[in-house]
Design a protein around this nucleic acid. Sequence first.
RNA 1: GGAGAGAUGGCCGAGUUGGUCGAAGGCGCCUGAUUCGAAAUCAGGUGUACGGGUAACCGUACCGGGGGUUCGAAUCCCUUUCUCUCCGCCA
Length: 427
Amino acid sequence: MLDIKYVRAHPEVVKTSIQRRNLNAEKINVDHLLDLDTKWREAQSRANDLRGQRNELSSSIKKLAAEERKEVINKVKGIKGELTQIEKDLEDLATERDVLLRLLPNLLADDVPDGKTDEENVEVSHWGQLPTFDFEPRDHVALGEITDTIDFDRAAKVTGSNFYYLKHEAVLLEQALCSFATAHLLPEGFIPITTPDLARSEVLEGIGFAPRGPEKQVYNVEETDLSLVGTAEITVGGYHSGEIFDADTLPLSYLGFSHCFRTEAGAYGKESRGLYRVHQFTKAEMFVLCEEADSTRQHERIRAQEEALLQELGIPYRVVNVCAGDLGAPALKKYDIEAWMPGRSAYGEVTSCSNCTDYQARRLNIRYRPEPTASPKHVHMLNGTAIAISRTLIAILENFQRADGSVSIPKALHPFTAGVKEIPCRR
RNA sequence: GGAGAGAUGGCCGAGUUGGUCGAAGGCGCCUGAUUCGAAAUCAGGUGUACGGGUAACCGUACCGGGGGUUCGAAUCCCUUUCUCUCCGCCA
């Protein structure tokens, strides 16, 4: 959520963000919002006057004789009639205004490229040598089948499409990747944390997810206000809601582990084969709370960690600066890191990191005091994928496959795989 | 799941026969005095949001959330969430 005071002062900047993000300006109407806001402020002012009058008269009642008292009470009742109506208007205006206010996306960083879809994201760097094979490389679905490590067919019996079982070395890899991420990020000051896999609507909304309605991306739990989380960003972000930090406790960095559940409604089509777009996966997520002036630096720090992890694994990748039209509403700027996936001879997103500035902190009410006696400001919040297990598995299987259908396990994971260094072909 | 108790400012904690309570007291923090400096001590200050004003400042709201009673609610009633204790069930 943006600061309404900022919207009042800089409506053009907000409009530009909406336009560049290719959002529906009819629906997300800044002028209408400001109009409602003006009316709300007028009503607020009037209500204040009336309440002031009421309070003054009310407090005098005690001292008055019975005769006068009746008269004044009637007078106050008259004020109350008008006040009740204005308070009703005030509430309606505030509700309508806030609905619109919450639809506004974050501002855009200066260096966010123009563009409508992910095809217009701009490559900013790349790393690693693309593998060459003297055989026809298999994709991860085929590899998962012949090594008996990923089973989609049987999962379909239990949960339907886009679920899977991991078996044998894939399970080792899942656990090893989590341990690998921890081992790498612990010395960097990240606090490991496991979180609930569910969260309340209030928290989902605070982070910028729609918990209900046609645009929701999450599973709801019946007869509760809970949803399965799509990322630990939600639960780690909600962790400190309502709190005020001393500046010297920031930045605060977490490495959150959770399962991620996504309905992926309407996302079927290309790029949805195999593990790429599934309803459940495990993820290690970096999450940083910091001071306002520090967030750009923290964003680069998270990105550097994401790159370091892929480099240690030996997976070729490129970094793209996500264009305005492909950015999520809470993000001021986002990098996607795309690993090379030989199964489709293309790069595919494996991690991303977003600078959400104070957009999430405002609704979650997470603040800090820049100085001990200063008024609190909202913290800046950033998130980035350390390891998304499912997509990392794609990259590992496809990049490290051999002609005989076996797969070598990256050296960086050997300390965590119980001595297992390769995945044998079983068919 | 059943029965009770509670939720107050950055923290702890008074206040429940409704009015002078944004809220005692303490801690913490800030400023000043004292000191070579510090500790200790003493004095003063110290919530958030919204609205108004160039400003000093003024008004309004906020005592977990929502609703109600009343001229007036931290205080009374209803409801909801959470916490704690006890009982039951269970990994």
